[in-house]
């Protein structure tokens, strides 16, 4: 039940956090803590120091800039689920947030934490891919914005460099219907497979999480759909549409099954956006 001992630093502001991170390469950032703390309790992670950014006002807040929805990295899942601005600008976000953990987890866990941790079974990456989100990353040396297509690199792997913090998630205003469908692991409630779909004037986008090492766009489904969201086309575009080759396989769900589920969930999500 006890983690290994660590030094605790409560950052007073973002610059303070960035400086401490630069000074303590072994330190971990503590935001919602819902991935980190359980891992530390099982002593599977033993960072020498934690930099607590969970109370930083600079990372909080939901605002808009023109047609851009800007989420502070410290925005919680519950805020995404219940906030009116988010519902107006990117209703796909609450459609995903309702699937994250449980009410208590949603009250603590943060969107920035999910983005930084890049758990292959996290929900948001699927929707963020379809929404064309980008992420503001800050370090003591400066800041940059990375688009979602370049950000998620692999299992727990992102474009984040040492000393960088995700500070904001930028989401262009959602221009059509979006939907997220999830088949969750009955024990952990993480996604075995999750599929987000978005039908905007620019076209239909579909992305999948949980099934592979990282979330990916299902371009073959997108191409097969084109702009034809008829029932028949959705069915034919999603059936056996996902190749099991690169997918994860475990005791609970084989790659073949995950591929099948991805097609089913894509169908269900697309039916909801037509």
């Amino acid at each position: 039940m006890y983690t290994t001992p660590f030094d605790y630093h409560r950052a007073v502001n973002l610059d303070d956090a960035l400086k401490m991170l630069a000074d303590n390469p072994d330190a971990k950032l503590l935001a919602g803590g819902h991935s980190l703390i359980p891992t530390m309790k099982l002593r599977l992670a033993s960072p020498s120091a934690l930099i607590d950014i969970s109370a930083l006002d600079e990372l909080r807040g939901i605002r808009t800039d023109g047609d851009m929805l800007i989420l502070g990295a410290g925005v919680t899942h519950a805020e995404l689920l219940y906030d009116k601005t988010v519902a107006e600008y990117a209703p796909l976000m609450p459609d995903m947030a309702r699937w994250v953990g449980d009410p208590m987890v949603r009250n603590r866990g943060t969107v920035g934490g999910v983005v930084a941790h890049a758990d292959p079974a996290a929900d948001y990456p699927a929707g963020l891919l379809t929404l064309g989100a980008s992420f503001k990353l800050k370090s003591a040396g400066g800041e940059r914005v990375v688009g979602v297509d370049d950000y998620f690199k692999g299992m727990f792997e992102t474009a984040l460099q040492e000393g960088e913090i995700v500070t904001e998630i930028h989401i262009p205003r959602q221009a059509g219907k979006g939907a997220y469908e999830k088949f969750r692991h009955p024990a952990s409630h993480y996604a075995i497979v999750g599929v987000a779909a978005l039908a905007s004037p620019e076209g239909v986008k579909v992305a999948m999480t949980g099934a592979g090492p990282k979330a990916v766009r299902l371009t073959q489904v997108e191409q097969a759909i084109g702009s034809d969201l008829s029932d028949e086309n959705i069915k034919s575009a999603t059936e056996n549409a996902v190749d099991a080759g690169s997918l994860l396989s475990d005791r609970f769900a084989s790659a073949e099954y995950r591929a099948h589920l991805a097609g089913v969930l894509a169908k269900r999500a697309l039916m909801r956006v037509k």
């Binding site: 703390i37 359980p38 969970s54 519950a78 208590m104």
Partner: peptide
């Protein structure tokens, strides 16, 4: 489960220092 600033949280997934 306890309430933290009015919201339910899991008190096993929060260090006491964070509740300062």
């Amino acid at each position: 489960t306890v309430s933290l600033n009015g919201e339910a949280v899991k008190s096993c997934t929060l260090f006491a220092v964070q509740a300062d």
